[in-house]
């Protein structure tokens, strides 16, 4: 990952789980092309020693550390090292915890990744955080001042503008004309549904741009009603998230655990191996996949290969064959109790 100023980014991960620390350090160093200088600490004490001895750009803290938990440590860091950007990682994200962390100075509040995709998303968010620089106009992270607050301010001021909103997973736009919400779009979705999804984003950034007329108007009615409805939908979704039926293919089951992880170069050099019972067989399998995927991707109607997911009742394998790496992750579901 080449940052514009070619400066090595210094990042400190604080977590009491050495396996997680090791995985993150290996992986993110490789993905950043060694542009990240990654330091690790297994306790708040160790982290403070590192911060005293060296300069750190971003500190990523586990919210659930023993003795001195992440939130307490966040407060200490805020007082002693206000210049360090802080990110909270948690195994169990709740709205209450999120608010607490953000109000205590965390730039981002992220759920702990449990899959290669999750790791990629966290990497992308941290990379964005480190490279972020204000552009023209007003821009901010969605934290202390929420997106909803900005929209309210624009509407109350009867302003006209376009809000461009994005996070690593999605990007959308909201058009406000003379204080009225007139159009929202998020990927292929538009209208009220898009507005609701934009307001349900748990993190990301936004930019306030000069108004331009949208090709269509997809929102009607008072802005207060639209925002209230979006808040209601978001709250209901948060409540029912754990009860929602699981899609057959990508079950977001609770307590799913990573049972095996292998990350290697396309030539078979292993970057990371965790609990793989037979590495040569895994690598050979991944290389076969890479070759097959490459042949299939030569068909114009498919495009580049992203990943193969294989699902059973007891687990799931996600295999990626990218131009610079091969990744194998096996997830195990907890036993089902009837």
């Amino acid at each position: 990952m080449n940052h514009p100023e070619h400066k090595r980014q210094r990042i400190l991960f604080v977590d009491d789980d050495p396996v997680f620390l090791g995985t993150i350090a290996d992986l993110f160093a490789a993905w950043s092309g060694d542009q990240w200088h990654i330091q690790q600490a297994q306790s708040a004490d160790q982290a403070l020693e590192i911060l005293k001895a060296s300069t750190v750009d971003v500190a990523v803290l586990d919210a659930g550390m023993p003795v001195l938990d992440g939130v307490q440590f966040l407060k200490i860091l805020g007082r002693r090292h206000p210049e360090v950007k802080k990110v909270m990682l948690t195994g169990l994200a709740t709205e209450e915890k999120r608010s607490e962390c953000l109000s205590n100075g965390a730039e981002l509040f992220i759920e702990k990744p449990r899959s290669p995709d999750g790791l990629k998303a966290v990497f992308a968010m941290l990379d964005e955080l480190m490279t972020w620089k204000p552009r023209e106009g007003f821009q901010g992270m969605l934290r202390k001042v929420g997106l909803q607050d900005v929209i309210q301010m624009e509407c109350l001021g009867r302003n006209s503008c376009v809000l461009e909103i994005s996070n690593p997973q999605a990007a959308g736009r909201l058009h406000i004309e003379e204080g009225n919400l007139i159009h929202a779009v998020l990927g292929p979705i538009s209208g009220e549904k898009a507005l609701q999804k934009l307001l349900a984003m748990s993190g990301g950034s936004f930019q306030l741009l000069p108004f331009e007329a949208p090709s269509q108007k997809t929102l009607n009615g008072p802005w207060e009603f639209l925002l209230m409805e979006a808040a209601r939908v978001r709250d209901e979704a948060a409540q029912s998230r754990t009860e929602a039926p699981e899609p057959a293919l990508t079950p977001a089951r609770r307590n799913t655990r990573v049972a095996e992880l292998v990350i290697a170069s396309v030539h078979g050099d292993v970057f990371h191996d965790w609990q793989c019972p037979d590495l040569p067989i895994r690598l050979s399998w991944l290389q076969t996949l890479a070759s097959e995927a490459s042949e299939m991707a030569s068909e114009d109607f498919l495009g580049a290969f992203d990943r193969l997911e294989i699902a059973s009742d007891v687990g799931r394998v996600v295999a990626q064959a990218k131009s610079d790496r091969l990744v194998w992750t096996r997830l195990a579901y907890p036993p089902q109790h009837s």
Binding site: L249, W285, L289, M296, G303, A304, F305, E309, I310, D313
Partner: peptide
């Protein structure tokens, strides 16, 4: 790919191939 899927995950039922366009 059936034998390779068995090798990857016993008892598999579904394989999902994800590409850029389809």
């Amino acid at each position: 790919w059936e034998p390779r899927l068995t090798e990857a995950l016993k008892g598999y039922k579904t394989a999902f191939w994800r590409f850029e366009k389809a």
